[in-house]
C-alpha cells in the first residue's frame, strides 16, 4: 500500500493541524475575515478542523467603510448561514474618536488606518491569537513569515529576530498583552487556493468573476468607481468587463480586464498570467518595503 496524500489534501491537512495547535495553546483566538477568497477558505478549513463542533472563535472584520457592496453582502450571508460569530472593527469609528487620521486628496486610502483599528479591536476584545489568510507566495515580506508569528505588546512584528520554528513543534507561549498571528495557509500559492475552491465547491463573492462595472484608470490601475472615489482631471468613468484577482477595499484594489466568468476560466487565466496577484494592489506600491513597514505596525 502506497501511503500518499494528494498535494491539495496535504495543504488542507497542514492547515487543520495548525488551527488545532493554535486553539489548544491560546485563550482567546479570532479569525481575521476580509471577505476575500483566502479568508473564505480559512473559514472552510476552520470548520473542518473542529467538526462536528462549531468554530470555537469569532470572525473579525476590519471594515474601512470603503468596502465593495458585494463583499459585505457575502460576509453577512455567510455568517447567517453558518451561525458564525462576527465582530466588526470600524475604521470610520477610529477616525471619529480621534485614534486615526484620515488621509486627504484623491489618492487617500484607509488601508494603513486598518492597523490602528485592528490593534484597538485586539486590545478591547483581549484576543491573544489571530488567524490570518496571508500566504508566503504573495509578497516578499510575507515570504519570511513563520506559521506562528509572535507580536509584542505593541502588536509589532520583529522580522530580524523571529523565533526559530522547528519541525511542526509550534511554540505558542507568550507574555500577557502579547499575541500571535497564525497563518495556516503559509504554504499555499494563489493557484492552490483556486484549485482548492474548485475541488471543495466553496462559494466566493461575484467580484472574482467577470462583470460589467464602472471604472476609471489611474497610473495603469483600473479602479472601481464609487461615491467616495474622487476623480482627478482628465480621468473618465467607463463601463468595462472586469474581475478582481484580490479583494481589499475599493481604494486599494485594482481590477483586471477579463471575460472569465466561471471558475474554470478564472483558473486558466491565472495559470496564463504573467503578473503577480498583488500586482493589482495599490497599497503594496507606496514604497519598496510597504508590506514590511505596515506589518511592523501591526498590519495583517
Amino acid at each position: 500500500m502506497d501511503y500518499k496524500v494528494p498535494y491539495l489534501k496535504q495543504l488542507e491537512l497542514e492547515a487543520i493541524y495548525i488551527f488545532r495547535e493554535a486553539v489548544s495553546q491560546c485563550e482567546n483566538p479570532a479569525l481575521l475575515f476580509s471577505g476575500g477568497k483566502d479568508s473564505i477558505v480559512m473559514v472552510h478549513l476552520a470548520k473542518k478542523a473542529f467538526w462536528p463542533g462549531k468554530i470555537p472563535f469569532p470572525l473579525v472584520h476590519i471594515d474601512t467603510g470603503h468596502n465593495f457592496e458585494e463583499t459585505l453582502t457575502f460576509r453577512d450571508e455567510l455568517v447567517k448561514l453558518h451561525g458564525h460569530n462576527l465582530v466588526v472593527g470600524s475604521v470610520e469609528e477610529s477616525i471619529k474618536n480621534g485614534e486615526a487620521h484620515e488621509e486627504v486628496g484623491p489618492k487617500a486610502s484607509r488601508n494603513a488606518l486598518q492597523s490602528i483599528t485592528l490593534m484597538s479591536t485586539i486590545e478591547n476584545n483581549k484576543y491573544d491569537c489571530l488567524f490570518g489568510g496571508a500566504r508566503r507566495d504573495e509578497e516578499k515580506a510575507r515570504a519570511k513569515e513563520r506559521f506562528f508569528s509572535h507580536r509584542d505588546a505593541f502588536g509589532q512584528w520583529e522580522p530580524k529576530n523571529q523565533r526559530p520554528e522547528l519541525w511542526s513543534l509550534y511554540n505558542g507561549r507568550k507574555n500577557p498583552d502579547e499575541h500571535f498571528r497564525v497563518f495556516p495557509l503559509s504554504n499555499w500559492t494563489e493557484l492552490d487556493v483556486w484549485e482548492y475552491i474548485r475541488s471543495e465547491g466553496i462559494e466566493i463573492p461575484s467580484l472574482y468573476f467577470s462583470h460589467k462595472r464602472e471604472v476609471f484608470k489611474r497610473e495603469g490601475v483600473i479602479y472601481a468607481h464609487a461615491p467616495f472615489m474622487t476623480l482627478i482631471e482628465g480621468e473618465t468613468v467607463e463601463r468595462v468587463s472586469v474581475r478582481f484577482r484580490t479583494i481589499g477595499d475599493v481604494t486599494c484594489t485594482g481590477a483586471v480586464e477579463s471575460t472569465a466568468s466561471t471558475l474554470e476560466e478564472v483558473i486558466n487565466e491565472i495559470k496564463a498570467s504573467r503578473v503577480t496577484e498583488r500586482g493589482t494592489r495599490i497599497d503594496d506600491k507606496r514604497s519598496e518595503a510597504a508590506m514590511e513597514d505596515r506589518k511592523k505596525q501591526g498590519y495583517f
Binding site: 508566503r136 507566495d137 509578497e139 516578499k140 515580506a141 515570504a143 519570511k144 522580522p159 530580524k160 523571529q162 503559509s186 504554504n187 519598496e288 518595503a289 514590511e292 513597514d293
Partner: peptide, 16 residues
Amino acid sequence: GLRAEREQGITIDVAY
C-alpha cells in the same frame, strides 16, 4: 525581501 537584507546584501531569515 526584508529592508535590512537589501541594505546589507545578506539573507537574515528564511524566505520561502
